[in-house]
């Protein structure tokens, strides 16, 4: 039976999070899962996705923490003079210390959607306690293959032109400058270099792309097109859920995502008894 505990924590006692603590204490060296905010959505996640993910992983034996970064959701400011990246690293370090003290885990897997994926990347670059990360709609870059797949079918399809124009018109109508999931990516060479360094340090990484980001990712093959030989390494993997939206608004899509996350974790971070964390 998992117990969930709501906690105020952090270097300035400014963070709010919910720790999911499976009944059996985690064996030494086991991983805890930390779920980061998706855009401006508070810790429960879009359509309560983060609650569903953490509870499902708790049922498998993984300790979890879903929490709000500084100033998001119910968390306050730490009142330090730091860049946003420094704040995020410090907040996640606080989250790891909290989960370590409550669940005994010493290594962590970060999970984030959209800006949450970017923040997971920022932390994974130099945090030694991070053992892995699951990036939902994380970094990817348009390639020649992307452009061919995107534009060639449109040349002769009236339906696709209609949908393309509808999307453009709606997007223009919706542009009020407050898109909760708007993000910008760093240069591809920098990301490739940082991912290579993570893999060299032994991290395991999984990228899951939804069908909601076809504006920059439209085929599983694109991951290799983006990152070249890096994509061949066994510690990194990617998949695409064609047809879903960016935030998994439909239950059937959320179940598919949950199954993927659980499966990847159990393959890459099994527990000492071979079944759980």
């Amino acid at each position: 039976m998992t117990k969930e505990r709501v906690l105020r924590f952090g270097r300035a006692q400014h963070l709010i999070g919910v720790a999911g603590l499976p009944a059996a204490p985690a064996p030494t060296g086991s991983v805890g899962i930390i779920v980061l905010n998706a855009g401006m959505v508070y810790r429960v996640g879009p359509f309560r996705l983060h609650v569903e993910i953490t509870r499902r992983l708790n049922a498998c034996g993984y300790p979890t923490l879903r929490f709000d970064l500084s100033t998001l959701g119910d968390s306050g400011a730490s009142n330090e003079s730091q860049s946003r990246a420094q704040q995020i690293r410090a907040d996640v370090a606080d989250a790891m210390s909290l989960l370590a003290s409550h669940a005994g885990c010493t290594r962590f897997v970060l999970l984030g959607l959209c800006s949450g994926a970017q923040n997971a990347h920022i932390v994974a670059v130099d945090e030694p306690r991070v053992a892995g990360a699951i990036f939902l709609d994380g970094y990817a870059y348009r390639t020649l293959g992307f452009h061919l797949r995107h534009y060639l079918p449109r040349l002769h399809s009236a339906a696709l032109w209609h949908r393309f124009i509808s999307r453009k018109l709606q997007a223009a109508a919706n542009q009020r400058g407050d898109d909760v999931f708007a993000v910008s990516f760093p240069p591809r060479d920098q990301v490739r270099r940082e991912l290579t360094d993570m893999l060299d340090r032994g991290l395991r990484l999984h990228f899951i792309y939804s069908g909601g980001v076809t504006r920059y990712f439209n085929h599983p093959r694109q991951f290799r097109e983006c990152f070249g030989r890096l994509a061949s390494r066994p510690e990194i993997s990617a998949c695409q859920f064609e047809g879903t939206d960016h935030t998994y608004a439909l239950q059937v899509d959320r179940q598919r995502l949950l199954q993927e996350v659980e499966g990847w974790l159990q393959r890459n971070f099994p527990t000492s008894d071979g079944s759980t964390a």
Binding site: R163, G243, Q251
Partner: peptide, 16 residues
């Protein structure tokens, strides 16, 4: 069309 490339089935969206 802003959310899904193709309309989803009624079954996928039912009960929600």
């Amino acid at each position: 069309p802003m959310r899904f490339g193709e309309p989803r089935t009624y079954e996928d969206a039912a009960g929600q």
